[in-house]
Design a protein around this nucleic acid. Structure first.
Length: 687
RNA sequence: GGCGAGGUAGCUCAGUUGGUUAGAGCGCAGGAUUCAUAACCCUGAGGCCGAGAGUUCAAAUCUCUCUCUCGCUACCA
């Protein structure tokens, strides 16, 4: 019976920044361990990844830095790809969504769905800004309200009379981008009616049943995944736009769809397919063998992702695959929680991160140490935390003391007693047989755990073999017996060496570099998983003198890394670029004054909003402000702050806000009032 | 605010369908040992299982309320 074919994907990293340890621990490393195991265990596997290189964030960043989007994605594709290679994440291909093959694949996919009537197409007349060459979202258009003649009504709503509007209702519409009148152009968008799919999604996610057949075992799916999906489905799915008006991405492959690209949902996940195609082309394979259903369950698709990506991979992509037809659906979507760092969240803007490429640069010889630690603390079921102190403890107490030490003592004794040759095995005691039985059982236990995606436990089980070895030596004390019973010592050392050799196989998925070193010491070849647990070397086989596998990590190392982390300044400036020049006249239209907050309450059912009563010197008015996460109601009362007085009133969460509190924002997104230095009173004009 | 997932020994985490003294690794204490990277091995101490209420002969496990953390989502002119 041939084993199942696996298509394993790891979430596509977004090509606008490097990878940090959180990404590694929560997606790439577990995926790699899983794949390395599957390969050893005789599965046909293709391991897919690539960089996601489209989307508005990249174009915005390019604009800010004054370079092209292509330059950005080229830069980060290289940094990320190089890190993966050096860290020995064994992708079969690391592709990119800007490749022509991907564009073709995504377009083809779109066309099939379109032809099958799987989309709802909505064509509307929308305003278009000719200077900025883009369609305008409703709120980027202002004009005169047809009902109350308010000259500054928004495209979606007139704040003055409260009537709901559409942009075409406005008289004399103006684009807030260019300040000029926009023109009407017809535009179409394609929506995926997800609501049509609730019926089959429910049993598929909850029970693993697809088209009346058992497709996967929902018990192996994580709670979080099933919980979040069911919550979405039970809450009712809604049609979602699958296209966007943007000039950076995969163009919508239909006539009259200029300036439109496929939305990320129809772009990034299809990157898994296009990457497989490229790999197949490069290696003389057929990509369809890994994606197309053959009516059985022996082709499995597995998506390793972070928890922020669950709905995307467990609902939307499956809908797309099913709508297209002919594809297999995910067998599992192992979603990882998040990793924290030294008591705080990873944060790119604060540069609170251990960047993978920097780690590799500093410690190119400590790759397996990092892998081991990250697997130990992998956030499989809840958020977890990386600290350098824990890294030190894991390396010193476990890798060095238990694993490294066992290997070293077994091989050093062999050198001493037998000049490196494996001694013969004599008669086995009951204890010997028990140890060999344990050794035999471990690979099976590891395999069971891996198939359940419990990789942390699986690695611990592999370490169990080293513990077994240490205990065996301690129990049998060959260094004592050697003086009285050298025959018995031969058997003991024979068994110790079998354990050592087995470590060289069993550790392979987790610590590939270490396993290779171990096999070099033992002078054996890599073998399939089936071989592990058995006797791997015979009497007379020559072993080598060992070197230290894991040097200890001293306290200075930890202190240095913690200091480095604390000293790192925010990377590039995250402040937005300067806005376009404006006229003095326009500036003087703004009426900004000091106002004193006399009362503050939380707006019900809103996390971020405070309803403030403000004495402006002219009057006392109500202003709703999105500062609740930065100021408690009681601490703002009495403060005199900057207020934009003549902003058109607007209803927010049912409360009319008459003006706006001006806030300063720092790089972390924290907000601060603007308070007069000399303690001026309410009413003071700000110019 | 709505929804989802978590809150279990100092730390990192397991606890299957409710059932005897709640587990593992590390750390800590004591012991034993010296082949080995002052390593290994043995023993032990440590938990009101986030808080409160309920269902039950029996609750870490089921129900409700509250609270803290993370994610998705809404609100942020």
């Amino acid at each position: 019976m041939s084993k199942a074919k696996y298509t394993v994907t790891a979430a596509l990293p977004y090509a606008n920044g490097p990878l940090h340890l959180g990404h590694v621990a929560g997606v790439y490393l577990p995926a790699d361990i899983f794949v390395r195991f599957l390969r050893k265990n005789g599965h046909d596997v293709v391991f897919i990844c690539g960089s996601d290189e489209h989307g508005a964030a990249i174009t915005l960043r390019a604009k800010k830095e004054g370079i092209t989007p292509q330059e950005i994605v080229d830069k980060y594709n290289k940094i990320i790809g190089d890190s993966f290679r050096q860290f020995a994440i064994s992708f079969d291909i690391f592709h990119r969504t800007s490749e022509p093959l991907h564009h073709e694949t995504a377009q083809e996919f779109f066309k099939v769905l379109e032809a099958k009537g799987k989309f709802i197409q909505e064509t509307t007349e929308q305003y278009y800004d000719e200077d900025f060459q883009q369609f305008l979202a409703d709120r980027y258009i202002t004009g005169e309200c047809p009902n109350c003649q308010n000259p500054s009504a928004y495209g979606d709503q007139c704040e003055k009379c409260g009537s709901d509007l559409s942009p075409t209702d406005l008289k004399n519409p103006v684009s807030t981008l260019s300040g000029k009148s926009p023109v009407l152009r017809s535009t179409s968008h394609w929506f995926l009616p997800m609501d049509r799919h609730e019926e089959w999604l429910r049993p598929w996610i909850k029970e693993g049943i697809l088209d009346g057949k058992q497709q996967h075992d929902p018990k192996t799916w994580r709670n979080q995944v099933i919980g979040q999906c069911m919550s979405w489905i039970d809450g009712g799915l809604h049609p979602r736009a699958m296209t966007r008006d943007l000039d950076w991405g995969v163009p919508v492959p239909l006539p009259g769809a200029d300036g439109k690209v496929l939305y990320v949902w129809l772009d990034a996940p299809i990157g898994y397919i296009s990457a497989t195609k490229q790999w197949a082309l490069d290696n003389g394979k057929d990509w369809k063998d890994y994606w197309v259903t053959n009516g059985t369950n022996d082709r499995k698709l597995v998506h390793f992702i972070g928890k922020d990506n669950i709905v995307f991979h467990a609902i939307i992509f499956p809908i797309l695959l099913k709508d297209h037809g002919g594809f297999i659906l995910p067998d599992n979507v192992p979603a990882y929680e998040f990793l924290n760092l030294e008591g705080d969240k990873f944060s790119t803007s604060r540069n609170w991160a251990v960047w993978l490429h920097e780690y590799l640069e500093r410690y190119p010889d400590k790759i397996d140490e990092l892998k081991y630690t990250l697997t130990c603390i992998a956030p499989e079921n809840k958020d977890s935390e990386f600290t350098w102190k824990e890294f030190q403890a894991r390396v010193n107490n476990e890798l060095a003391d238990i694993l490294g030490n066992f290997v070293n003592r077994a091989l050093v004794l062999t050198q001493k007693y037998y000049e490196g040759a494996v001694p013969a095995c004599g008669e086995l005691t009951e204890a010997d047989q028990a140890v060999l039985a344990d050794m035999k059982a471990i690979p099976q236990r590891i395999a069971d755990l891996v198939y359940q995606y419990k990789l942390r436990d699986a690695q611990a089980e592999a370490m169990q073999l080293a513990r077994l070895g240490n205990k065996y030596l301690a129990d049998n004390e060959p260094w004592k017996l050697v003086k009285t019973d050298s025959k018995r010592v031969e058997t003991i050392m024979h068994i110790a060496l079998q354990i050592t050799a087995n470590l060289g196989l069993v550790l392979d998925p987790f610590l590939p570099e270490t396993a290779a070193k171990l096999r070099a010491f033992m002078n054996i070849e890599p073998q399939d998983w089936d071989a592990s647990g058995n006797l791997l070397v015979s009497a007379g086989h020559q072993t080598a003198a060992p070197t230290i596998l894991f040097p200890k990590i001293d306290d200075e190392f930890v202190a240095r890394e913690v200091e480095f982390l604390n000293a790192s300044q925010p990377v590039a400036s995250n402040f937005p670029p300067q806005k376009e020049e404006t006229s003095f006249d326009d500036f003087t239209k703004m009426d900004i004054r000091l106002g004193t907050i006399v009362d503050a309450i939380r707006v019900p059912k809103a996390d971020k909003l405070l309803q403030l009563t403000v004495n402006t010197g002219l009057d006392t008015r109500t202003i709703v402000s999105g500062i609740a996460e930065h100021y408690a109601p009681e601490e703002v009362v009495g403060k005199t702050v900057a207020v934009l007085m003549n902003l058109a009133p607007r209803k927010i969460r049912g409360v009319e806000s008459q003006g706006m509190i001006l806030m300063a924002e720092n790089e972390e997104g924290k907000l601060s009032f603007m308070i007069p230095e000399k303690g001026f009173d309410a009413g003071g004009e700000i110019r």
